[in-house]
């Protein structure tokens, strides 16, 4: 952190720093940021071993579809917040206990609310959420049908043969002049 603060301080007074030192500072800053992000990824999630691949897959699915209550936009499988670690631990223990996915999800929702579901359940309150996209598609289809119909009608009401000949003649005359 001290390195980064130094680099920042130097960066802020870049006019006072000669060109080469400026470059070196930037390089250092970049390195620091990169190293930090790498270590952040590395320390995120513990490794758990399961007796069988099916349970392991269920565990992966569960930690991937439950949302961390603290960090707002992360699944608990991606988050290194303490509460996400606790939730993973509970899931692990309950899987070992032979609980079903539904039981485990209910257990979490009972404590942290619907918020933890990345896939909201289909119920009264979520009807709009699930229904709106479908409704919009329907509206789109209706609009499309209306447009196609009106265009077809416009074509039907187009010029008669006689009129078309007259039009062609007019265009020709225009072109000749």
């Amino acid at each position: 952190m001290a390195v980064m603060r130094n680099a920042m301080r130097m960066a802020m007074f870049k006019k006072a720093v000669p060109g080469k030192a400026w470059l070196a500072t930037m390089a250092l800053l970049t390195m620091t940021v990169l190293l930090h992000s790498v270590s952040a990824i590395a320390e995120t999630v513990e490794v758990r071993s399961f007796g069988n691949p099916v349970t392991e897959q269920r565990y992966r699915d569960l930690v991937g579809t439950l949302r961390c209550p603290k960090c707002e936009n992360q699944a608990i499988g991606d988050s290194n917040s303490p509460i996400a670690a606790d939730m993973r631990e509970r899931i692990y223990l309950q899987l070992q206990d032979g609980r079903s996915d539904k039981e485990i999800i209910d257990y979490m929702v009972n404590r942290f609310g619907d918020y933890v579901l990345y896939n909201p359940r289909l119920e009264g309150r979520t009807l709009l959420l699930w229904g709106l996209p479908a409704a919009l598609v329907m509206v789109g289809v209706v609009v499309l049908i209306v447009l196609v119909r009106s265009r077809r009608k416009a074509r039907m009401g187009a010029l008669t043969q006689e009129e078309q000949q007259r039009l062609a003649a007019l265009i020709k005359r225009e072109g000749d002049e």
């Binding site: 209550p69 603290k70 917040s81 509460i83 606790d86 509970r90 404590r111 942290f112 609310g113």
Partner: peptide
């Protein structure tokens, strides 16, 4: 805390 749904 967990049973209360405490996240911080």
């Amino acid at each position: 805390g967990f049973d209360l749904g405490v996240y911080g």
